[in-house]
Design a protein around this nucleic acid. Structure first.
Lengths: 189, 189
DNA sequence: CGGATACATATCGTCTCGATATATGCCGTC
DNA sequence: GACGGCATATATCGAGACGATATGTATCCG
């Protein structure tokens, strides 16, 4: 899914500026399974505008530069419906952390411990970030959007599983690293 | 981590051709947390060669085009050590599937069910693919590389968590979708 | 009073992917 | 036995995305 389609679909949830769309991908409801940069969003919105799939409303502001508030058109809505029909691509998971950990035998024990502990902390933080979003919604009004709740729960489940795995395998890894080094003492630190 | 560094690090595990490196990222030990395309690997290897971080050995073959077997140099090994020192970037997870599921209220019930069931199947398949790799190793010789085992286990844990979550939340989602539609009967489809 | 952060848009270089081209041997199958 | 598809193997190219950077102001905090 290209950023153009992503932006269009997001606009079905209500009008927004490029800046606001970016925030939705950074901290908002899409943060844990999609992302988009300014360098993609702004050209995408321009193109959607020229294609007539969105409308723009310039909103003057006191000091700050003018906002361009985009809203979807009926034509755009139809394009979203079509886009939601496609078979989704495979998920992409990329982790430099796991790549480093793969080469654990080339790292010092202290470094391995540090890497794992830091990563557990970030997983827990992200897990709680999503959990807070869910809590904020169920606290306020009635129950929300089923799709939104489900994907949020998915994020919580994954981050929890990741953190739990690292925590429960930390000691084993360290012990096996020691055993590995004992087996081949020629290997330098 | 750019593909250049990825290739160099992979070559610390033994000599390989560009094609073989690609396979390691596609089906091998890195498949579930890194990826790289031919369009990145071949230029990366050329550049590493010109920088003296790898050596190439042309190997003639019967019918097929010549292999270029790359192996790391001591200079390359030092560069890998340095690269493993950096603080790893945040993990990247991108899922078009979750994006579609987010918009579940715009999809038919049958489509939601199909999407989830298919995705559960792919998660289970990937989970078992990694589990088989682990089993193949522990069956044959002694216990293997601690880092490698740990990241493989991580992959199994994540895929299992993802599949389990979808399976145990499938019915709830469908029920809440029905409730959602009952609340607002004006919604078409 | 000064620095950091938030708001807001835009561009540009670099990297990466995915498709495509090229070439051949092997295997199954019709 | 012919033919298509798949695995091996390298290479290039266009399209798209990211991340850094530029620009400018308002507000918040110490």
């Amino acid at each position: 899914m290209d950023v153009r389609t992503l932006c269009l679909a997001v606009l079905t949830k209500g009008e927004a500026t490029g800046y606001e769309i970016k925030k939705m991908f950074e901290e908002g409801p899409f943060a844990h399974f999609q992302s988009a940069s300014f360098g993609s969003i702004y050209p995408a919105l321009s193109r959607l505008l020229s294609e007539g799939l969105v409308e723009a409303r310039a909103q003057e502001q006191d000091g700050r530069p003018d906002k361009k508030v985009y809203s979807i058109t009926p034509a755009g809505d139809a394009v979203v419906d079509a886009a939601l029909t496609v078979t989704p691509e495979d998920d992409i998971f990329r982790s430099d952390f796991l790549f480093l950990l793969f080469f654990a035998t080339r790292l010092s024990e202290a470094r391995v411990i540090e890497l794992i502990d830091e990563r557990v902390a970030t997983y827990r933080a992200k897990q709680e970030h999503i959990a807070e979003q869910i809590a904020a919604r169920t606290d306020s009004d009635c129950c929300g959007d089923p799709g939104r709740e489900t994907v949020a729960g998915f994020g919580v489940a994954l981050y929890r599983a990741a953190a739990d795995y690292l925590e429960s395998n930390r000691e084993t890894l360290i012990e096996e690293l020691r055993a590995y080094r004992a087996r081949r003492p020629e290997a330098a630190e």
